[in-house]
Amino acid sequence: MLGRAAYGVFWMARYLERAENTARLIDVGFHLALTRGDKASQDEEWKSVLTTTGQLEAYKAAHKDMTGPQVFNYLLRDRENPASVLRMVEAARTNARVVRTSITNEVWEATNDGWMTLSEILSRPVRESNLGEVLTAVRGQATLVRGAMGGSMLRNDVFNFARIGTFIERADNTARILDVKYYVLLPSVAWVGSSLDNAQWDTLLRSVAGSRAYSWLNAGSMDPRDIARFMILDGQFPRSLVFCFEKIRSNMAGLAKQYGHETGAHELLRNVGARLHQTTIEEIFDMGLHEFLQDFIGKTNLIGDAIAADYRFIE
C-alpha cells in the first residue's frame, strides 16, 4: 500500500475518533460544571477539559475569559482552532477523499455525509440549550462511519491501518481523561462516598461510554481504584487501555501477515502490551498513577511515530 494512502486512512480514522472523544469530554465538562456551585469551580472544570484535549494554551492565547459557552464553541466550531471538532471532521473527510479508491462507497458516503451534517449544525453558535443535541450528532456521525467500515470493508491493509489509527487515538484519550480527572474530581476528601462523589465518578465513566458497563461488573460501587482498574486493565471494556492495545496488536499482526514481515513498531507494541497485561492495579498505584499514564501516553505516541516511519507515511 502506498504511504500516502496508508497515511490517509490512518488519519481519517484518528480524526473521527478524536472528534467523538472531544464531544464526550465536552459533555463531561458541561455536566460536572453543573454540579459546581460557584463560577470559579465551573471555570476549573472547563479548564480541565481544555487540558485533557491539549488545547489550554491555545485557548488562552485566543480568549481572556473561560465561560462554558465560549469554551465549548471553541472546541466544537472555531475555524481558527485546528483541533476543533469542525476542523477535525473536515480533515477526516479530506483524508477520506484522498483514499477514496481504497475505501468502499459506504465508508466514503458516511464520512462525507457526516461532514455535511456537522458543517450545517456547527455553522451557528452552539448554546447550552442545544449542546446535548449537537454532541449526540457528533457521536452519531462517528458511529455511522465505523459501522460502514465494519460492515463493508475487506479485512486488508486499508482496514488494518484504519483500525490501528482508531485504537491508538482511543487509548491516548482514555489515558488522558484518567490522568487529568483522577486527582481533580473531588472538591475535597470530605466528599468521598457522598452523592456528589458518585455523580462525578459516574460522569467520568460516561466520558468513555463506560458507566453502564462498569455498573454491571461492579454492582454500582463507585470505588476510585476499581474505576482505574476498569479503564486501564479490563479486557472486556472497548475503551480500556488493554482492550485498545489488543486491537492494535491484532491489526498490526494483520499487516505483518499481508506484507510478510514485522517492523520495529511491532516490537515496540509487544513491549508496551506485555507491560499492560502483566501489571496489576496495585503495582500501578505503587508506581504512581500519573507516572504510569504519562509513560503510557509517551509510548503510545512513539508507536504511532514508528508505524508512520516503518510504513513510509506520506502527508
Rank of each mutant, 00 (worst) to 15 (best):
Q42W: 11
E44R: 06
E45Y: 01
K47L: 14
G54N: 14
A58S: 04
A61K: 10
H63Q: 15
H63C: 15
K64M: 14
G68P: 07
P69R: 06
V71S: 11
N73D: 15
L76R: 07
D78R: 05
V85R: 04
A92Y: 02
T94F: 05
T94C: 05
V98M: 06
R100H: 01
S102N: 14
S102Q: 12
I103Q: 02
N105C: 11
E106M: 13
V107Y: 00
E109Q: 11
A110T: 02
A110F: 00
T111F: 03
M116E: 06
M116N: 10
T117E: 09
L118M: 14
L118N: 11
E120T: 10
E120G: 13
L122F: 10
P125H: 03
P125F: 03
S129R: 12
G132P: 12
V134W: 02
A137R: 10
A137V: 02
V138R: 01
T143W: 09
T143V: 09
L144Y: 04
A148E: 00
M149T: 09
S152N: 07
L154F: 07
R155D: 04
V158C: 04
F159H: 08
F159G: 04
N160A: 11
F161H: 07
F161C: 04
T166N: 10
I168M: 12
R170N: 08
A171Y: 03
N173Y: 09
N173S: 13
N173M: 14
A175E: 00
A175G: 08
D179I: 07
